[in-house]
Amino acid sequence: MRSKKVKVEDAIGTILCHDITEIVPGEKKGRAFKKGHKITSEDIDKLRRLGKNHLQVVDMDPDDVHEDEAGIFLGKILSGKNVEVSEPSESRVNLFAAADGLLKVNVDALMALNTLEDVVASTLSNYTIVRKGEMIAGTKVTPLVVKGQILKEAGKIRKEAGEIVSVLPFKALKAGMVITGTEVYKGLIKDAFRPVLTEKVEKLGGSVAHVSYVPDDEEMIKNKILEAAAVCDVVLVSGGMAVDADDVTPKAIASVAEVIKYGSPVLPGAMFLMAYMNDDTAVIGIPACGMYAKVTILDLIYPRVAVGERIRKEDIIRLANGGLCRRCESCHYPNCSFGRG
């Protein structure tokens, strides 16, 4: 890439190094040609009318790619399922969600792209809930032209990594609830879990297909989990998750499902439990904070379950970075640091 001064008639096929302004006295003053514009034969007459006899341009080498072409290429490299790509503006291309769902970012591949010279790519945080039409990522190159070899390297990253930015639609999950606690079962206190959990399930396109109340009895809790699992995709078991003598919920879950992780590095939500039955039905143990805290670990994990992702032990451990809720007087979640490690 070289910058040089050329006659207007010799500028066809070159790239402008600067904006060119058009002034109509008493009417307007604005940009007629923008920096980075590729000169065509149709531009020559207008440039002459603007009083331009010479231009400062970029002379492209055979391996050079114009910024807009590079932006389009990078947009295609980034985009996966349920992602739409905009037209370029000064090489920047934006990516938008084509459906409601959960944003999935291959973070390692995104980091690899950004190690390439002249390449910029940024996204919303991985596992952000997004709505159709929402901007989720942007990419561009920094110079007016970029070497084609850089784009080839970007292509290799995509080939090896697969999809880098995608939107996973929420599934219409049928959720079962097993609400434990002798005091609730006997009607001594009002249940506060059901309305909270129902809202979270329905917000992500699911429905509540089964609800049962049981005392702090391991065998009864076990049987109700099995009853719910027979007709549901996920079973939410609330209460009795601590170490009190009456808290037997973890044992009941462990008797019917494989426990992936009991205890989490998220506050609120330390006594959270994630398990799966043999048929992959998710069983989630929800501690008491789930009924009174505005957001908990459930708000970080359940959306991933709702798109069909199987939660691993390391997924929960990784939540430690960003897993502390600030307990703001006015909650701004999800527009805050919680879960954004």
Results as ranks from 00 to 15, higher is better:
residue 103 L to I: 10
residue 111 M to S: 11
residue 111 M to G: 07
residue 111 M to A: 14
residue 111 M to T: 12
residue 111 M to W: 09
residue 112 A to K: 09
residue 113 L to V: 09
residue 114 N to V: 13
residue 115 T to P: 00
residue 117 E to S: 11
residue 118 D to K: 08
residue 119 V to D: 02
residue 121 A to R: 03
residue 122 S to T: 15
residue 122 S to Q: 08
residue 123 T to A: 08
residue 124 L to A: 09
residue 124 L to N: 14
residue 125 S to K: 08
residue 127 Y to N: 15
residue 128 T to W: 00
residue 128 T to M: 08
residue 128 T to L: 02
residue 128 T to N: 14
residue 129 I to T: 13
residue 131 R to A: 07
residue 132 K to M: 07
residue 133 G to C: 03
residue 133 G to V: 01
residue 133 G to L: 07
residue 136 I to G: 00
residue 136 I to T: 14
residue 142 T to D: 06
residue 144 L to K: 05
residue 145 V to D: 05
residue 146 V to K: 09
residue 147 K to H: 12
residue 148 G to P: 13
residue 149 Q to G: 06
residue 149 Q to D: 14
residue 153 E to L: 13
residue 154 A to G: 06
residue 154 A to W: 12
residue 154 A to S: 08
residue 155 G to E: 06
residue 159 K to G: 02
residue 159 K to C: 00
residue 159 K to V: 00
residue 160 E to M: 02
residue 160 E to T: 08
residue 160 E to R: 15
residue 162 G to K: 06
residue 163 E to S: 15
residue 165 V to F: 06
residue 165 V to G: 09
residue 169 P to W: 13
residue 169 P to V: 07
residue 171 K to V: 04
residue 171 K to L: 14
residue 174 K to G: 02
residue 175 A to E: 04
residue 178 V to W: 10
residue 179 I to S: 00
residue 180 T to S: 03
residue 181 G to W: 01
residue 182 T to V: 10
residue 182 T to L: 05
residue 182 T to H: 01
residue 182 T to Q: 05
residue 185 Y to E: 06
residue 185 Y to H: 14
residue 187 G to R: 04
residue 188 L to Q: 10
residue 189 I to R: 01
residue 191 D to S: 05
residue 191 D to R: 09
residue 193 F to H: 08
residue 194 R to W: 08
residue 195 P to F: 08
residue 195 P to K: 09
residue 196 V to A: 05
residue 197 L to D: 03
residue 197 L to C: 01
residue 197 L to S: 02
residue 197 L to V: 03
residue 197 L to Q: 06
residue 197 L to F: 12
residue 200 K to M: 10
residue 201 V to E: 05
residue 202 E to H: 05
residue 203 K to M: 10
residue 204 L to V: 10
residue 208 V to W: 09
residue 209 A to Q: 07
residue 212 S to F: 00
residue 212 S to A: 15
residue 212 S to K: 01
residue 213 Y to H: 13
residue 214 V to G: 00
residue 214 V to I: 02
residue 214 V to P: 00
residue 216 D to R: 01
residue 217 D to Q: 07
residue 219 E to D: 12
residue 219 E to K: 15
residue 220 M to H: 02
residue 220 M to I: 00
residue 220 M to A: 01
residue 221 I to K: 02
residue 223 N to I: 00
residue 224 K to A: 15
residue 226 L to H: 05
residue 226 L to D: 13
residue 227 E to S: 04
residue 228 A to S: 14
residue 229 A to F: 03
residue 231 V to C: 01
residue 233 D to R: 04
